[in-house]
Design a protein around this nucleic acid. Structure first.
Lengths: 213, 213, 213, 213
DNA sequence: CATGAATGAGTATTCATTCAT
DNA sequence: AATGAATGAATACTCATTCAT
C-alpha cells in the first residue's frame, strides 16, 4: 500500500509536470506549432510516459485548457453584502482584468479560439467555464443589488453582458490581437467611464450626478 | 495586346480561384492545418502556379484576410445626415452584424487571432482593417451627433468602443467560441437594450423616457 | 536576305547574352544551384527562347565551359626564340597564373570537377582543352630549349608536368579549396624557387650557382 | 545497462549504415544530386531516423568527408629514423597515392571542391585535414633529413609543397578530371623521376650521380 | 512501468521544362 | 519567332505516435 501510494504520487507529480510544460509550450507556440517531444523534454519525461497520461496531443491540450479555466474563479466573495453599485462595478472589473492578464488567460483564449472549428465541444466547454462562470458570478451580484434596491429592476442577464462587453472591448479585445498589449495607465479612469454608462441606465440616481466623465 | 490581355485575364481568374480555395481551406482547417497542396488542388492549379501568385502560405493567408477585411466597410453612408441617435445606433449595429456574419468575418477573426503570436504584424494590420475601420466610422457618426446637439458632448473614442463592446459581447463573442452560432431571434430587441444603455448616458434626454426595456 | 541576316545576328546576340548570363550564374552558384529561369532573366530572354538555343541546362553548361576553355590559350608567343630557361620558366608561370586567376578559370574548374561523375566526356574534353593545351604549349618551349642546348636532354612530357605541378600546388590547389584565395605577395619569389628546383635537375649549369634561394 | 548498451549498439550500427549509404550516394551523385530519402532507403532507415543522427544533409556530408579524411593519416611512422632521402621520397609518395586511390579520396575531393562556394568552412576544414595533415607529415620528415645532414638546409615548407605538387600533377590531377583514372604501370618510374628533380636541388650530392632518368 | 529510438505520412517550397497564344 | 504562365516531380525536413527492450 505504501508502495502503491508512492507510485500514485509519483505518477501524479509527473502528470502535473507534463501539464505545466504543456501549458508553457502551448502558450509559447500555439497548438499546432507546439511539439509533443519538446513538452515531454521540458517535463523530464519520455514521450511514451506522456502518452500514458494523455491519449493524444489534443487531449493534452484539453487538459491544459480545463486546468487553466478552473483558475478563473468566482468574484462574488470580493464584495461585502452591502457594497454599493459603483464600487461593485469597479471591484469586479479590476478582479476580472487581474485574472485575465495575470494568468495568461488572454493567450489561452487565443489558442482555444483557434481550435474552435476542430474541437467545437472543447471550445464550448471552455467558453462556459471561462466566460459563463464569470457571467453568472456578475449576475448574482447584480441581482443582489436589484433586490437591495440599489439598482433599478431589470434583466440582469443582459445587463451583466453589456457591462462585461464594455470592459472586454477596452482591454481584452486589444490583448487578443496583440500579444504584447498591457493594461494602460488610464485603466482605472476607463473602467470608471464604463461604470458611468452602466449606472446611467441601471442606477437609481438617474441624474448621473457624481459622474466623473 | 490580345495576347497580353488574354494572359492577364487567365492569370487573374486563376488568382481568384486560388483565393477562393484558400479561403475555404483556411476557414475549414485554420492556418496551420490547411495544406497548400490541397488549396492548389481545389483551385485546379499546380502548387507551382500557386507560388507564382503568392510567395508563401503566409502571404496567401494575408491576401485572403485582407480580401475579407476589405468587405468590412464604412457604414456612415447608411445614415442620413439628420438620423437621430437611436436610429443611428440601431442601423449601425445591424450593418455591423450583417457584415460580420455574412462574410465569414467571425471565422477569419478566429484564424487571425490564432496567428497573433506567430504573425503579430499581420494580426495588427487585420485588427486595424477590421476593427479600426469600423471604429472610426462609428466615431465619425457620434461626432456628428454631438455637433448637431443630438448627443451630449463627450469622449466619442471611448463611447464608440463602449457601444461596440456591448454589441460584440452579445453576438460576436459567442460566435467566436461557437462556429455554429447564428444571430438569435431577439437580436433586434437586444440591440435596442444596448441602445438604451448608451443613450441613458450620452443621449440628451436623460430621463430615459421612451425606453423599451 | 537582309532580313535573314538581321535575324541571324539578333539570334546570335541573344545566344551570346545567354552564355554570358549563364557563365555568371554558374560561377556564382555552381551547376545545380544555378536556376535556368534566373539565367534567362539576366539575359533578358524568355525561358522558351533559352531552350531554343540550348536543349537543356547541361548543354548550356557545356557551352559555357567550352567557351571559357577556349580563352585559355597558348603561351609560346610570349617568348623570344632565344629566351633563356629561367626567364622562360618565370614568364610562362606568370602567364599561366594570370589566365588562371583573371578569367575565373579556378571557379570554372571547380564546377567542371563537380560534374565529372555525371558528365565524364565533358570533363575529359575540358581537361584536354584547359590542361592539355597548356601542357603542350609548355612542352614545345622545353623541347626548343633542349634543342638549343640550353637544357639537358630529357623527357619533356614529364618535366613539363613536374614544372606545372609545382606551380599548381603553390597557387592553384589552394584556390580550388578557397574561393577567396588570391595570389600572395611573394608569388614571384615562390615561382623563382620552383624554377631553381626545375633547373637544378634540367638546367645545364648543375652547380646551381645564381640560385636565389 | 543491458538496455542502454543494446540501444547504443543498435544506434551505432544504424549510424554506420547511414554513413555507408551516404558515402555511396554522395560519391555517385555529388552533394546536390544525392537525395536524403534515397540515402535513408539504402541504409534501411527512415528519413526521420537519419535526421536523428545528422541534423542536416550538410552535416551528413561533413561526417562522410571527415570519416574519409581521417583515413588519410600521418606517414612518418612508415620510415626508419635513418631512411635515406630517396627512399623517404619514394615511400611517402607510394603511401600518399595508396590512401588517395584506395579510399575514394579523389572522388570525395571532387565533391568537396564542388561545395567550396556554398560551404567554404567545410571545404577549408577538409582541405586542412586532407592536404594539411599530409603536408605537415612530409615536412617533418624533411626537417629530420635536413637535421641529419642528409638534405641541404632549406625552406622545407616550400619544398614539401613542390614535392607533393609534382606527385599530384602526375596522378591526382588526372584522377580529378576522370573518375576512371587508375595509377599507371609506370607509376614507380615516374615517382623516381620526381625524386630526381627534388634531390637535384635539395640533396647533398649535387652531381646527381645515381639518377635513374 | 518507463524508455527513447524509430517511423510513415506529411509539410512548404523549388525548378527544369513545355505549350497555348 | 517569342513569350511567360503553367506544371509535375522532386526536395529537405518535421512530428505525433508506437514498440522492442
Amino acid at each position: 500500500m505504501g508502495l502503491e501510494e508512492y507510485r500514485r504520487s509519483v505518477s501524479e507529480s509527473k502528470r502535473a509536470s507534463i501539464l505545466r510544460a504543456a501549458r508553457a509550450a502551448f502558450l509559447k507556440d500555439g497548438f499546432s506549432r507546439a511539439a509533443v517531444a519538446e513538452i515531454a523534454n521540458m517535463a523530464d519525461v519520455s514521450t511514451a510516459t506522456l502518452y500514458k497520461h494523455f491519449d493524444s496531443k489534443e487531449e493534452l491540450f484539453a487538459a491544459v485548457a480545463k486546468d487553466a479555466a478552473m483558475s478563473v474563479g468566482d468574484y462574488s466573495h470580493l464584495l461585502d453584502p452591502d457594497t454599493a453599485p459603483r464600487d461593485a462595478f469597479l471591484t469586479l472589473s479590476r478582479a476580472y482584468l487581474a485574472t485575465q492578464f495575470e494568468n495568461h488567460v488572454n493567450d489561452l483564449m487565443r489558442i482555444i479560439i483557434a481550435e474552435v472549428p476542430s474541437h467545437p465541444e472543447l471550445a464550448r466547454e471552455m467558453m462556459d467555464l471561462i466566460v459563463g462562470r464569470r457571467h453568472r458570478s456578475l449576475q448574482n451580484v447584480l441581482d443582489r443589488l436589484v433586490a437591495q434596491g440599489m439598482l433599478r429592476p431589470h434583466d440582469t442577464t443582459l445587463s451583466a453582458k453589456l457591462a462585461s462587453g464594455m470592459i472586454k472591448e477596452l482591454f481584452v479585445w486589444p490583448a487578443l490581437f496583440n500579444a504584447d498589449f498591457r493594461l494602460p495607465e488610464d485603466t482605472e479612469a476607463k473602467i470608471d467611464m464604463a461604470a458611468n454608462v452602466f449606472l446611467a441606465r441601471y442606477g437609481i440616481d438617474t441624474t448621473g450626478q457624481g459622474m466623473t466623465g
